[in-house]
Amino acid sequence: MKFSTKPALALFLVLFSFQCINAQIDANSLFALPRATNTEILSITAPNPGSLVYNTDDNGIYKFNGTNWSAIDDTAKLKSVILNRNGGYNIPNSTNTYYNFPINNGHVQYIDNDIFQVVSNGTIRILKTGIYMISAELSTSNMPAGNTKYIIAAFRNNNLIAYLNRGSVSLTNQDWWGSTGVVMYNLNANDLISLRYVLNAGQTLHGRLMNIGITKMN
């Protein structure tokens, strides 16, 4: 008599699959990528194109494309802090004197708390080492007539590191005015970044739009 093996084979496959699904996975048997900080990754000598590494600063996977390391998963998207303030405030100023942007934790539009901490007016603490893009905008509704010197600058730990914009505005009549600028800079964990301005206006200015944005690029 000839017996069919198909039912037995089917039962075996079902039981085998059930066992595999319910088996406890040993964490030590999982495939794991090398782990490294930003600094360690950038110091790797001549990595092969296609190499993968887990970035412990960004908590994401990076791939080497033959020239640069780039994030390949959603957990390593650009990290930002955005502060924005609309009108209804004064902009203090005095000849050739730096003032912090009057914008603080109460004006946060978006923040990645793993990367940034708003400390005080115009001052943000950087929590992770990396390359950052820093931007700032300042505007007023009553810039006086004549020539007015202005500066928008970035300070790191109270030391001037960059002018985002500087120059002189010349108006025939009191009018609206604004300026913005961007700079890229390599920053370290616990650096304090302050955005400051100089306005030689000689009068109280009415703030209109003010913005600070910092984004971690890698």
Score class of each variant (00 low, 15 high):
residue 170 S to T: 07
residue 105 N to E: 08
residue 153 A to Q: 02
residue 203 Q to F: 02
residue 167 G to I: 08
residue 112 D to T: 00
residue 210 M to W: 07
residue 4 S to D: 15
residue 22 N to G: 05
residue 95 T to W: 01
residue 22 N to C: 14
residue 96 N to K: 08
residue 105 N to K: 00
residue 134 I to S: 03
residue 133 M to E: 12
residue 215 T to Q: 06
residue 65 N to E: 01
residue 195 L to A: 13
residue 52 L to H: 05
residue 162 A to L: 09
residue 183 V to R: 01
residue 111 I to F: 01
residue 64 F to L: 08
residue 126 I to Q: 03
residue 44 I to R: 13
residue 94 S to R: 13
residue 171 L to C: 04
residue 206 H to Y: 14
residue 55 N to P: 04
residue 189 A to W: 08
residue 185 Y to K: 01
residue 89 Y to V: 11
residue 176 W to Y: 06
residue 138 L to G: 07
residue 12 F to K: 11
residue 176 W to N: 09
residue 46 A to T: 12
residue 174 Q to E: 14
residue 210 M to P: 06
residue 203 Q to E: 10
residue 59 N to Y: 14
residue 210 M to R: 03
residue 48 N to C: 01
residue 168 S to C: 03
residue 108 V to I: 10
residue 217 M to G: 08
residue 94 S to L: 12
residue 150 Y to V: 13
residue 11 L to T: 10
residue 188 N to Y: 00
residue 112 D to A: 00
residue 31 F to I: 08
residue 92 P to Q: 09
residue 81 V to Q: 05
residue 212 I to A: 07
residue 15 L to T: 10
residue 133 M to G: 14
residue 102 P to I: 14
residue 29 S to H: 07
residue 213 G to F: 03
residue 191 D to F: 02
residue 184 M to A: 14
residue 31 F to R: 06
residue 217 M to I: 13
residue 116 F to V: 02
residue 100 N to Y: 09
residue 174 Q to N: 04
residue 79 K to H: 05
residue 192 L to I: 06
residue 186 N to E: 10
residue 61 I to H: 00
residue 170 S to I: 11
residue 177 W to K: 12
residue 134 I to L: 15
residue 180 T to L: 02
residue 196 R to D: 09
residue 88 G to E: 15
residue 82 I to Q: 00
residue 118 V to I: 08
residue 195 L to V: 07
residue 203 Q to M: 10
residue 172 T to G: 10
residue 124 I to E: 00
residue 67 T to W: 11
residue 63 K to S: 12
residue 85 R to F: 04
residue 93 N to I: 10
residue 183 V to P: 02
residue 93 N to L: 14
residue 213 G to E: 07
residue 164 L to C: 04
residue 143 M to G: 02
residue 159 N to T: 14
residue 132 Y to T: 00
residue 214 I to C: 06
residue 206 H to K: 09
residue 217 M to H: 03
residue 130 G to I: 00
residue 193 I to S: 01
residue 33 L to F: 11
residue 70 S to F: 11
residue 7 P to A: 08
residue 27 A to Y: 07
residue 110 Y to K: 09
residue 61 I to K: 00
residue 181 G to K: 01
residue 150 Y to C: 12
residue 32 A to L: 10
residue 76 A to H: 03
residue 72 I to G: 01
residue 40 E to M: 15
residue 216 K to G: 02
residue 151 I to S: 11
residue 119 V to G: 03
residue 184 M to H: 15
residue 90 N to R: 05
residue 41 I to L: 14
residue 108 V to T: 14
residue 70 S to E: 04
residue 191 D to Y: 07
residue 187 L to I: 14
residue 79 K to V: 01
residue 107 H to C: 05
residue 105 N to Q: 12
residue 113 N to E: 12
residue 65 N to Y: 02
residue 149 K to H: 15
residue 79 K to D: 06
residue 90 N to A: 13
residue 42 L to C: 09
